[in-house]
C-alpha cells in the first residue's frame, strides 16, 4: 500500500527562482534562506519518496479568470513550466503519475470534492520553485508528481476548513492506493505577504510564528478562521496558507516537526519552511 511519509511546506516566491538561476545561494541576503533546505534534503534522501503531491496555487499561467477552478488535480504524464511574463527562467518538465492521479480524483469526487481534472497542465513558480528547492536534480530522478491546485486568485476562496478537509480526503485516498509507494505531501506559498494596495509590504511575524507552531499538532485552531480573517492577519497573498492546511490534513493525527526555517524578508514575503514527519 502507498504510505505518506511526511509533509513539507515552503514559500514559492519568484525571486527564489531567480536566485537559483544566478547561483546567489551564499550571498548575505540569501544564505539563511537557502541554509534551511539541506537538512530537509537529507531527510528526503533517507526516506526516498516516489511521489510528491504538490498542493499549490496557480498565478495566471495554466488558468485564467475565464475558467478558474476552486480545486484542480493534474492527471498528465508530464507537467510543463512556462514563461510567466516577467523573466523567470523556465525549467525542465516534471514527471506525472496519471494512474495515481485518477485514483485520487475518484476518491476526492466520491468525498464530494467536485474537481477540475487536467490531462494537460502547465505549472508555474508555485509548483516549480518548491521542486527545485527540495530536489535540485529532480529532472534526473524518477520522482513523480501529482499537482493539486487551489484557487487563491479569485474570491471567494475555499475556506481553511474546506482545504484541510480536502487534505484529509487526499490522505485517505493515497493510503488506500494498492501500490507500494512512498508519498510526500507539499504545501507551498505563504507566509504573510501582500503585493497589492496601500497595505503592500504587510508582514505579520507574530501570526506566522503562531501558524508554524499550531499547524504541527493543533491544526484545528484554523478550521473556524474565515478567509477574510486570514487575509487580515496574513496579508492578501498570505491566504496561500490554505495550501499548507491542505497538506496538514493529509497527514495522520500526530506529526513530528523535524526542521523549520523562517526568514523576513525574501522579496516582499516572510518565507517559511517546515518538514513534518508523519506518524507511522
Amino acid at each position: 500500500m502507498a504510505r505518506i511519509v511526511g509533509g513539507l511546506t515552503t514559500s514559492h516566491i519568484p525571486a527564489i527562482g531567480n536566485a537559483i538561476a544566478k547561483g546567489s545561494h551564499d550571498e548575505p541576503y540569501w544564505k539563511s534562506f537557502f541554509g534551511g533546505y539541506p537538512p530537509v534534503r537529507e531527510w528526503l534522501e533517507d526516506v526516498q519518496p516516489d511521489i510528491a503531491v504538490m498542493i499549490y496555487n496557480d498565478h495566471g499561467l495554466n488558468f485564467f479568470l475565464d475558467k478558474q477552478p476552486t480545486f484542480a488535480v493534474g492527471a498528465a504524464p508530464e507537467y510543463y513550466n512556462q514563461d510567466e511574463g516577467w523573466g523567470l527562467p523556465t525549467i525542465a518538465p516534471f514527471k506525472g503519475a496519471p494512474e495515481l492521479s485518477w485514483h485520487i480524483i475518484e476518491a476526492l469526487v466520491a468525498d464530494e470534492f467536485d474537481l477540475v481534472t487536467c490531462q494537460e497542465m502547465n505549472v508555474d513558480h508555485g509548483f516549480a520553485i518548491p521542486m527545485q528547492l527540495f530536489w535540485p536534480d529532480y529532472a534526473e530522478r524518477d520522482l513523480r508528481t501529482v499537482p493539486v491546485m487551489i484557487n487563491t486568485v479569485q474570491h471567494p476562496l475555499p475556506s481553511p476548513k474546506r482545504c484541510y478537509n480536502l487534505g484529509r480526503s487526499l490522505g485517505r485516498a493515497i493510503e488506500a492506493y494498492p501500490e507500494d509507494l512512498k508519498v510526500v505531501i507539499i504545501g507551498t506559498g505563504g507566509l504573510s505577504h501582500q503585493l497589492d494596495g496601500e497595505r503592500a509590504g504587510f508582514i505579520n511575524k507574530e501570526f506566522d510564528e503562531m501558524c508554524m507552531e499550531k499547524i504541527v499538532n493543533e491544526p484545528e485552531y484554523f478550521l473556524d478562521m474565515s478567509i477574510h480573517e486570514l487575509v487580515r492577519q496574513a496579508g492578501a497573498q498570505g491566504a496561500e496558507f490554505i495550501n499548507w492546511l491542505a497538506m496538514r490534513g493529509a497527514l495522520n493525527g500526530n506529526v513530528k516537526s523535524l526542521h523549520t526555517n523562517y526568514n523576513i524578508p525574501i522579496s516582499n514575503t516572510a518565507a517559511g519552511l517546515m518538514c513534518l514527519e508523519n506518524a507511522a
Binding site: 495566471g60 479568470l65 486568485v153 474570491h155 497589492d196 503592500a200 504587510f202 487580515r232
Partner: peptide, 29 residues
Amino acid sequence: PIDGTVMFDGAQAIKGYALNKMCYSFNEA
C-alpha cells in the same frame, strides 16, 4: 473592510475582465 486591501471578488472580476485578459496575454513573448 481591511485598510489598503481590495478583495478581488466578483465585482472586481466583472470590472477588470478586459484588463486582466490583456495582462494574461503577456505570458507570451
